[in-house]
Design a protein around this nucleic acid. Structure first.
Lengths: 143, 143
DNA sequence: TATTGTTATACTCTATAACTATA
DNA sequence: TATAGTTATAGAGTATAACAATA
């Protein structure tokens, strides 16, 4: 490949394809009452409970006061609970409610359906390529 | 594949890999003074000039007043210009300045470098799979 | 004294409603 | 009357600074 001549490399093309598809996945399947930021936090709580507000702030790369507000909203909406850590009075534990768990499950289901519908239009060979690519993309993210 | 047993399908795995990598691309390479929303608009202006505020609002799926503010900010920052459409007094044309063009080019370069660095750690065969996957992802987005 | 979380306050992005100007 | 854009105002999310409680 002559990058200087083409102007774009293979990894550039890959980046554009990924950003485009992820944008569609976010926009086309929003469909929750929850905002993207609240949903992201809820998902961390569901997958990693019990979890502290500080850790959530770290994971979402926002400041602790900001995360505090988001957690408050989720509590008010009945999607998560806050409780004091019995082992350390400074700490707080956040856990999902049954409804919080259900919201995440429903959203994942909807997103899967959107992509699966398109995935099904591909040939078997194309699907096989994407299956291999999925592993490799995982390696890229971990690298 | 036995989906009921696995709990996730191939397209689910693909979706997770894409969302994860796109998140990293956004977070790890932010590095512009510009916010994500302003940068997204600037990029449309650079790639599609001249373009109207209304069309930009459509592309970014925000309301016209919201886009108006964003364009104002970009004008103040010297990254785009606003001019009256000579053919229709109601319309406005937005174009990038030289600095606006340079900001987009720099940002793309930085994002490419981030991914290319990781891409280079893959074997030739893995890179070949991703090259084919890139085409297929494009088809998925268009489907 | 360090850590964890919270409150107070301000800025950015977005929205809805109402207005202006041109076709 | 319809279209393109703008202004006014409000809500959600985030940040920094300051504070409280516990280890």
């Amino acid at each position: 490949m002559d990058e200087a001549r083409h102007g774009t490399s293979e990894s550039t093309e890959l980046r554009l394809a990924i950003m485009r598809l992820s944008r569609l996945l976010r926009l086309e399947t929003a469909a929750t009452d929850l905002s993207a930021s609240r949903y992201a936090v809820l998902r961390w709580v569901v997958t990693s409970a019990p979890i502290s507000p500080g850790r959530l702030a770290e994971l979402e790369r926002v400041t602790p006061p900001s995360m505090n507000r988001t957690v408050n909203c989720l509590v008010e909406e009945g999607l998560v609970t806050r409780e004091d850590d019995p082992a350390d009075g400074r700490k707080v534990l956040v856990r999902p409610t049954d409804r919080g768990i259900a919201v995440v499950a429903d959203t994942q289901r909807r997103r899967d359906a959107w992509l699966a519908g398109r995935y099904a239009t591909l040939t078997d060979e194309e699907q096989a390529v994407l299956a291999r690519a999925t592993e490799i993309l995982g390696k890229l993210a971990d690298a």
